[in-house]
Nucleic acid binder design. Sequence first.
DNA 1: ATGCTGGGTTCGCTTGACGAACCTTGCTCG
DNA 2: CGAGCAAGGTTCGTCAAGCGAACCCAGCAT
Lengths: 160, 160
Amino acid sequence: MAMLTPVSQDSFDRSRCSVAGTLAVVGEKWSLLVLREAFLGVRRFADFQQALGAPKAVLTDRLGTLVAEGVLRREPYQAEGARLRHEYRLTPKGRDLYPTLVALMEWGDRYLADGPPPLALDHRGCGAPVRVALRCDEGHEVAGPRDVHARPGGPAALPG
Amino acid sequence: MAMLTPVSQDSFDRSRCSVAGTLAVVGEKWSLLVLREAFLGVRRFADFQQALGAPKAVLTDRLGTLVAEGVLRREPYQAEGARLRHEYRLTPKGRDLYPTLVALMEWGDRYLADGPPPLALDHRGCGAPVRVALRCDEGHEVAGPRDVHARPGGPAALPG
DNA sequence: ATGCTGGGTTCGCTTGACGAACCTTGCTCG
DNA sequence: CGAGCAAGGTTCGTCAAGCGAACCCAGCAT
């Protein structure tokens, strides 16, 4: 009857939970939207502000937090005939949040759509739509939570 | 030089963005953690409260919102010798947020770890670790945002 | 009747989001 | 030279949201 083995309900240390940890980094309002824009190529403060409509103070704080967390890096850059400015660019750590963003987008496309999805992702070159998938290391397709066993502890409980 | 085609920076209607829409549903504080617990098999108010440590008022509000959005459903249930109570269970719409949660968890495992990941996901039966992956409909592996072309508009811009 | 338990609601306090206004630096234009 | 302007912030007052503690209520057990 239980969809997932409820063993984890008691023995799993929630204070170290990676979901909570990740949300502590990118879970504040605007943070993930800032990253969405970053993935779309936005780099400058004013462009983030215009795209998002977020208050400047909040945007300053979010960008600062994301830089402090190593998700973005703040780089000086030279526009010709203009003074030195900064731009915010994704680090590899930030780029690894891409599947998360795509997963959020895909869910929204499926359930919130009042029309066609506003943004489509195509595989570069091949042109086919890109989707998130769950898969195990043996290559099997994982349909959903019912196919997954959640186990507290390390990545593979090596016996003796 | 641009990592992604910046065409979308102007022509993409952000007010309808699916990332923003999804975050409007599950982006408040505690919402995604409530769902994490739901995926672990938690169903009752008191169990959510104990697992999360969230204020009751906030938890009441989040559960109510998630029910109103159709992510959870509130079901009466019968414990023997006890009065009628309710439990909160994932709907199919809620279950489809699983890849999002796994993506968040995987990122946290990779970048926030001070030790082994607190929770491991294994493919039921096969036992191999479960991961999120990006793939296109042709079956190609998609490594990251550089392999993706973001295009505003419908899922496939049908010509004429 | 008394208390316990699950599932909340109410209340003050503190934190965070918000928009408008202001500031600073270094261009360009007259 | 000085004025104006733009990017990138900071400051301020207001208002919503999160917080923990306390309280409430229905119904079963004693």
